[in-house]
Simulated scan of single mutants.
Amino acid sequence: MSKDLIKNIFNFRATEINKFSKKKLVLGAILIIISLISLFFISNNENFYDKPIGKVISIEEKEFDKKTDDGKIELMKNQKIRAIIMNGNHKGEVVEADNIASFSQVNDLNLKVNDQVFLSITDNDNHNISSVKITEFKRDKYIVLIMIIFIILILLIGQKKGLRSLASLIVNIIILLIITELFTKGYYLMICSIIASILFIIFSIVIVSGRNKKSFAAIVGTLTGTLISMIIAGVVIKINNWSGVHFEEMDFLTQPPETIFFIELIIGTLGAIMDIAISISSAVKELYDKNPNTSRRVIVRSAREIGQDIMGTMSNTLVFAYLSGSIPTILLFLRNGVPITYIVSIDLSLEYMRAIVGSIGIVLSIPITIYISILILKNHNMGEI
């Protein structure tokens, strides 16, 4: 190889690296500018709220002990809050309010200087403030900050795939809002949820992975796996006549709890199955791309090995995801002397039912998606549909 050829190769690679670096720098700069603008706006958006907002400027605290109903002592503190009103007719006025904070902070706020809170203000006949009450914490700034961090990370790491994932998320939120609006108009909730689930699957996979046979295989695998797991769950629950399934936490609903529970099962299960299905179909596609003459037995063995590795972690993910939301309830019951057997059998019955049904769907979706992917992808052009 001549020196000129080697030099040209190195120059070409250096040019490509510089172009890639410039793109990342431009993307990073744009994201930083948008993030700063968003943070500035959300930090100065008080005038867009109808509720009065106060910014805490000083706090005087006095601690005291409170005896709870079970005879235990909990540390409490009385906060004397001085806050400046940020919007509304009393903008700029300084007010005082009392706030009781407990160690557990179950139903109260432990405020700090510079915190922003929503206020309930009562005026007298002269339109002057007669009383002020703190209602809740203003959290939009922290929510937007977390969203900005998420968007920056998914775009910098995922790049085009990350942008597609964001687009998919936005589309799914829009679908959810539309379905919710249809339900408020009187449409049947189960039908709306099934339609929404199908749309979630199609748009999530197609937007992220494109319109190709790999995506089609993942969609068919997800729909088939979800359907079979729901049929199994429905048959088992019907045979046992809902024995062992307790709906006490759904007493406040105006819909039959069985319907709501099945909708939860469908949405929770299809999310996990969709992850498995796209992973399996991608693996099968890559195996065929590397060697189109690979035998079906080798493909099945390799895809099954991949699926088995994913299966264990995804099942644990489902269990942790469902049970983690119940940790406060578990701790509250344990503190009040409720036996762990009662907590598991009564208060966690819905959570572990969701986890079990989702795990069944994960296990079933592996062989289903493998054979569907082989059927669709083998001896077919892998280009766009």
Rank of each mutant, 00 (worst) to 15 (best):
S2K: 12
K3N: 04
D4H: 09
N11F: 15
N18F: 12
S21H: 13
L25S: 08
L25N: 06
L27D: 00
L31W: 12
L31C: 08
I32M: 15
I37E: 02
S38A: 13
S38K: 07
F41L: 12
N45R: 15
I59G: 05
E74D: 00
M86W: 06
N87F: 09
V94C: 04
V95I: 15
N107L: 00
L109V: 06
I129T: 07
S131K: 14
I134D: 10
K141T: 07
I143E: 04
L145D: 03
I146N: 07
I154T: 12
G158H: 03
G162Y: 07
A167F: 12
I170E: 02
I170L: 12
I174H: 07
I175T: 11
I175G: 04
L177G: 06
L177S: 10
I178L: 15
T180P: 06
L182W: 15
K185N: 14
I195E: 06
I195N: 04
G210M: 00
G210R: 01
N212P: 00
F216Y: 04
A217K: 00
T226E: 03
I228P: 02
A233W: 07
K238V: 08
G244M: 14
H246K: 14
E249S: 14
T254P: 00
P256D: 07
P257I: 08
T259N: 15
L270Y: 06
L270P: 01
A272V: 14
D275G: 10
I276E: 05
K290V: 09
K290F: 11
T294I: 14
S295A: 03
E305G: 09
E305Y: 03
E305Q: 09
I306A: 00
G312R: 02
S315P: 08
I330L: 02
L332N: 05
P339T: 10
Y352C: 01
I360M: 06
L364Q: 09
I368D: 04
I372G: 04
S373R: 06
I374W: 03
L375H: 05
